[in-house]
Write a protein that binds this DNA or RNA. Sequence first.
DNA 1: CTACTCACTGCACACGTTAACAATCGCCAC
DNA 2: GTGGCGATTGTTAACGTGTGCAGTGAGTAG
Lengths: 344, 344
Amino acid sequence: MLRPHTSSKPVSIKDIARIANVSHSTVSRALRNSPLVHPSTAEQIRKIASESGYRASAVARSLVNRRTHTIGVVVTTIADPFNGEVVSGIEDKANHLGYSVFLANSKSEPERELRVVHSFEERRVDGIIVTSSRVGAHYADLLERMNIPVVFLNNHNPGNFAYSVSIDDGNGAREATNHLLDLGHTRIGYIGDEFGLRSNENRLSGFRGALRSRGVKEHAEAMESGDGSCAEGAAAMERILKRTPLPTAVFCYNDQTALGAMSALHARGIRIPEEISVVGFDDLPAASYASPPLTTVRQPMEQMGRRAMEILAGLLSGETAGIEGVEKFDGELIVRRSTASPKK
Amino acid sequence: MLRPHTSSKPVSIKDIARIANVSHSTVSRALRNSPLVHPSTAEQIRKIASESGYRASAVARSLVNRRTHTIGVVVTTIADPFNGEVVSGIEDKANHLGYSVFLANSKSEPERELRVVHSFEERRVDGIIVTSSRVGAHYADLLERMNIPVVFLNNHNPGNFAYSVSIDDGNGAREATNHLLDLGHTRIGYIGDEFGLRSNENRLSGFRGALRSRGVKEHAEAMESGDGSCAEGAAAMERILKRTPLPTAVFCYNDQTALGAMSALHARGIRIPEEISVVGFDDLPAASYASPPLTTVRQPMEQMGRRAMEILAGLLSGETAGIEGVEKFDGELIVRRSTASPKK
DNA sequence: CTACTCACTGCACACGTTAACAATCGCCAC
DNA sequence: GTGGCGATTGTTAACGTGTGCAGTGAGTAG
């Protein structure tokens, strides 16, 4: 029995080779279950390896294989629950596929985003997933520079990237708005995300399209923008509340904005949904535990993360079959208790 | 001007050496700003490097330096907002210190936790941070096996590990409970986390200690357990509501549990805080946007994450000065509107 | 007996970087 | 002229793993 825990340096195949009285290549082959090595020696080698606590060095292996089996994930901030869900899906799939994931927050600072991608480049990640990027324009050049596959998830930025998975913003917004229209609302506000860019535009135009197709007109005094956070959602709602007439319903860019808006309404003593209905977008876990539980458009966040990873892995193994450039997921309207017909 | 984007393989220092007509070691030195190389050649080399889009290979560098400048972070799940905040702090600090972070979810499955740590071992991470581990017992052996530094953050598990940062559970719980006692509550419930282990025990005993020191007795019918999630928080509260007499206040293991509990109360039409006061623990962003805004014990989650990374980096550079084994952070009671005096 | 095949193993190099050591050159003091 | 020194550069060997190629036997067919 070996004493594996004492040596400071990790044991290598050469150490094992010395003990087993074979060359290090035989060890390498044995540990990778190559048919080229005699079963009995292979077994002996594997025994020594496991007793000595041997762990193959992924870094040495990566050097020769030119594949690190590593991917980089860039998020604005992992503290955002939306990104948490997405990354959870990515990591889960990556784990099953044998990839490790580097996580980096860009904080939406272009300078930092650059640093992060450079670091990924040096680490020789096999691929990159970028979620909810707001400064994606910078990527365009970096992309072809690195020529490694990149998959975008809900990229907010205009511009066409080769591979992306995203939610169908327009349709989701349309469904949500139709729900409010069906309830009889005709004075509906919208709280957007001023940094949401394309994503915000698409939801906004879905909203507008729904109004137009029912002949309901838009009310400029009930249109406001936050930045996708609770805090700014609340602030935006407060601005709307200062103006008259008040809307009877508000559709929000995302759940966080909606939760913030609801908090502003509560603070003013305005009842939801009796006086104002609220609709969000995302279906964060918190949405169903809000009071009242939030009507929203569900994004399959984890699933989208998994799919992004799947696509990336597909690109890495050269199987482009069954991979479309742009995959759109459908949102699902989840009706809860934050919406009701307006009182006459 | 070079055409960097065409070659499939990344450019190496040897490529640069060939172009600059020097040896690869001179290139290596020049790029690392060694004083050993003539300023003019150094400048020329740096020019070629930048024009060719050269990026040093961290994997090759790691192989010779035996330092990857990489750390592994194990969380139960990154979809948990608490972990999101913590990891955000860790990543931020790591980034500034020149470390990249591998993220892995254990999902509290021992088998998966093992796989994850093995993968970190193969990747030759310089250190590991484990947050909110519920199966930490398994780590004990793995730890010394790997002999790389490990820092625990809010480790739920009994057993003493060398380095950890955690919240002062007992004191936080005591403050929260005292707040309720000060308001005049005498029938106070507790909703715990059955998997919270030590962390739950400490909060529970802080709760009990506060009651005892005021001579208020515990009410078994108002004691329940969830698993730290909204869903189970709601379920636990529903169980309490089936029993009489009802408590006038409930202290919850964490904010998620509290949010779930509030949702259950709302569903039954029970008013907060008029009929039942609710207190949480963590101060997640969602807590201040709940309705009513949640009274809770704030954990400086990001800061704790940063500190854990700082400690780890300290251990890695051998500066043990100013590093205590176990660092405890103080929680801060944040009084919002989910608590009030009981009606007589 | 020879030649050939088969199963297994070792040798040597490659991957991209760092670093210890050697080498070269110009210059200065003796 | 010679020796030494300082500045700059090159040579070489690692780091741990994978792999093409050569080598070594043993067994077998001719």
